[in-house]
Write a protein that binds this DNA or RNA. Structure first.
Length: 140
RNA sequence: CCAGUCGGCCGGGCGGCCGCUGCUCGCCGGUCCAGGAUCGCAAGGUCAAGCGCCAGCGGGUGGAGGAAAGUCCGGGCUCCAAGGACGCACGGUGGCGGCUAACGGCCGCCGGGGGCGACCCCAGGGAAAGUGCCACAGAAAUGAAACCGCCUGCGCUUGCGCCUUCGGGCCGGACGCGGGCAAGGGUGAAAAGGUGCGGUAAGAGCGCACCGCGGUUCUGGCAACAGCGCCGGCAUGGCAAACCCCACCGGGAGCAAGACCAAAUAGGGGUGACCGGGCGCGAGGGGAAACUUUCGGCGCCGAGCCUGUUUCCUGGCCGUCACCCGGGUUGGUUGCUUUGAGGUCUGCAGCAAUGCGUGACCAAGACGAAUGGCCGCCGCGGGGGGCAACCCCCAGACAGAACCCGGCUUACAGGCCGGCUGGAGAA
């Protein structure tokens, strides 16, 4: 904790639809309040210049989770949680997408942060398969 | 104080830590541009300071709603090349007057209905232009009708009825045939005005009075309409959110509008080839001249095409193909947020909506979309415990700007203020 936290936690967000779609078939880890997906940027040519040492983040909050007020609250809580844990736990050179689930708006905030930490650690160690399987069966 | 009614307002507060975004100031760095000083013959180099831009740090400051919602009306703005006239179709509005940029909004008034009242509700033009629809019940449902019933004539019959000059007569009843009536019963949302008196065989606007309805004179009012009088005995049920008729209003699409810049494709400019409605003018070539020839040069006419459509007017476009130059989609900038039909205080005009003047005031600008995350305290509300101070627990409404305004509608925990009405109490 010697380094000032604020300087390191400026989040770089994903903004383009193509960037979100690229990560959809990457590594996944699920918890009650959210799903984390990630993929390395290596080998991918971006239309815009990106600092290779950065980790970038995207949030997905669908309309199924509620009205605009509820979705805004979920988005803000997740962003605030990311702010705390991004610097020590995200790998540089990777893009992350956090897909919110219903409990994200109401659950205990400390629990949300703790879950994010585990998710960021484990998403790299165990690639989940369900989405890839679904795509495979679909393409047949 | 209780009950009610109308209008206005609020939509938790304070603090700590950590963030996001706009503007602004300062510092450090980078970059660009022109100028200055200086070195150099020159190309150019060096130096410090400055404008702009970019990135970082620090300070200051602003940052969701009353409905930001639904997208139901009305505008501004933008594009459809620019604009006008008349109409058709379609859609909308619907008492009258005013306000407004405009409206389907608001204010005032009128009419009808409801309420003891304050007050509330009304899609409130036309049903004697036409077409159409009124189920069920009921005898009959709209150029109406007679089931029960009431009255009556005739026939037949009847009565411990009454009178008798013993021939019969009177009165009442049953049945049959006929006539009159529409008061009463019954059906229905609705049955050809209502109530009362007179009248009659029984009845009936048959007559009269009042009320209602229709017509009309006069008076009041800008008008919707109201009032008084007179006339008509009264011939016209409802539905127009059924078609329709009348009056008035409306071109379409929308900030993903549109503009600019950067990377790949059409209209526009140049060259070539093919094809060429008529007339005139001009220019060039040929010819001494008459004249002839070339030119998608210009003008006129004709044909064709061009705003959602039709008719018309002004206007615009007009041969095809190939090659070469300039230009839609994606990214950025802009539109884009402090000059706006802004609210508010006060003065004046007005019953009011509102208008005019004056002063001070407020105005978020994101774009995978900021305006917050976590925590503590206080306050309000509900429940439980306790004599009480107080303690514990629970819940915190509807809901998130996306170009901007004026309205309408819908959603909403809890609370505050004021006017008025009805009642109760006190003086």
């Amino acid at each position: 904790m010697t380094a000032p936290v604020t300087a390191a936690t400026k989040l770089v967000m994903l903004k383009r639809r193509s960037e979100f779609l690229r990560i959809r078939n990457g590594l996944r880890w699920s918890t009650a309040a959210f799903v984390v997906e990630t993929k390395a940027r290596a080998g991918w040519t971006s239309p815009m210049p990106i600092d290779a040492g950065l980790a970038r983040f995207g949030l997905t909050v669908t309309k199924q989770l509620g009205g605009a007020v509820d979705r805004n609250r979920i988005r803000r809580r997740l962003r605030a949680a990311l702010q705390q844990i991004a610097a020590p736990h995200a790998k540089p050179g990777f893009d992350y997408v956090v897909i919110a689930r219903a409990p994200a708006g109401t659950c205990d905030f400390d629990q949300l942060v703790a879950d994010l930490v585990t998710a960021f650690e484990r998403v790299h160690s165990r690639p989940a398969k369900p989405r890839q399987e679904k795509r495979a069966t679909k393409s047949k």
